[in-house]
């Protein structure tokens, strides 16, 4: 059974159809990329899954259970966490505090026992810190040691991206939605992020859905690629299948250029 099932999802904002009958499944342990030109509805799909928007019609099932209409924080409890396209870190908190705050929803004590620092609270706080350092260790030593207690606003852009991914991992989610994890990163940082995403799946056991524009990254790690255009799913399959699909080429390059490109591909016999 698929971990995440998205069925016939429709959402429009006034006259603009953001997603139109989008359906796809994500199996446990998969890395699925959602690509598409700007305004294709990729981020809307993320916002629908995480409960920021409510779909006009259609169903989203996670672990066999419908999550439509649930609050964002409730969906995190069930095990879906996300990162944001333009970083949304808690800038005045430290790296460690950022990652710890993502675990707060799993805390099983009342505020009063937190004030009184009961043994149960202390134990949970210690455990939270262990998990936080474990998740930060995914990114190598660069977020460890003295960086832990530095406020996020002193971090470089790449380190902020890493912190945000660690924060999403720390929520205890099984399914991570990464919204352009490599946005604004240079090629070698992109290479590093690619490796980290793969390790998150292989070592961390996470299932990953990502929205991405960098085709190199998408081609290298995706098990499956879903292409959206004008809110509709126009292709799905392996990276190779998808990039050679005439509809996808058309969506990215326009009709005329697509025809030329397809001709070229046919001449060289790649198709």
């Amino acid at each position: 059974m698929a971990m995440l099932e998205v069925a016939h999802l429709n959402k429009s904002f006034g006259g603009l159809t953001a997603t139109n009958d989008v359906s796809f499944d994500v199996a446990e342990g998969e890395i699925v990329s959602i690509i598409g030109p700007n305004g294709a509805g990729k981020s809307t799909v993320f916002n629908l899954i995480t409960g920021v928007y409510r779909p006009d019609s259609g169903d989203i099932r996670f672990g066999g259970r419908s999550i439509v209409g649930m609050g964002t924080n409730r969906i995190v409890d069930l095990g879906i966490a996300r990162t944001f396209q333009n970083l949304r870190l808690f800038t005045n908190l430290t790296v460690l505090e950022n990652v710890l705050s993502a675990q707060h929803h799993a805390l099983r004590t009342t505020w009063l026992s937190a004030v009184l620092r009961t043994p149960s609270y202390r134990r949970q706080e210690r455990r939270m810190r262990e998990i936080a350092t474990e998740k930060l260790a995914f990114f190598g030593p660069r977020l460890m040691s003295f960086r832990l207690n530095q406020p996020v606003y002193v971090l470089s852009y790449a380190n902020r991206r890493r912190t945000e991914m660690a924060r999403a991992m720390a929520t205890g989610a099984k399914l991570l939605l990464l919204d352009e994890p490599s946005a604004g990163m240079n090629p070698s940082e992109t290479k590093e992020i690619t490796q980290i995403i793969r390790r998150m799946r292989d070592e961390g056991g996470y299932t990953i859905v990502l929205v991405e524009h960098k085709m190199g990254l998408v081609g290298e790690i995706s098990d499956r690629v879903i292409v959206l255009d004008y809110g509709q799913k126009i292709a799905e399959g392996s990276y190779r299948q998808v990039v050679d699909d005439p509809k996808v080429i058309e969506a990215y390059l326009g009709k005329k250029a697509a025809a030329e490109r397809i001709e070229e591909l046919e001449e060289t016999g790649e198709r």
Binding site: T50, V52, G71, T72, N73, V76, A81, R82, F84, R88, L89, F90, T91, N92, L93, E97, N98, L100, S101, A102, Q103, H104, H105, L107, W111, A114, V115, R117, Y121, Q124, E125, M128, R167, A168, T171
Partner: peptide
């Protein structure tokens, strides 16, 4: 405490706090 961290997270960014 963890509750105070959660409150400060809300101060910093409500959308992100809810998403966490």
């Amino acid at each position: 405490s963890s509750y105070g961290r959660a409150m400060q997270a809300i101060r910093e960014d409500e959308v992100a706090a809810q998403a966490m």
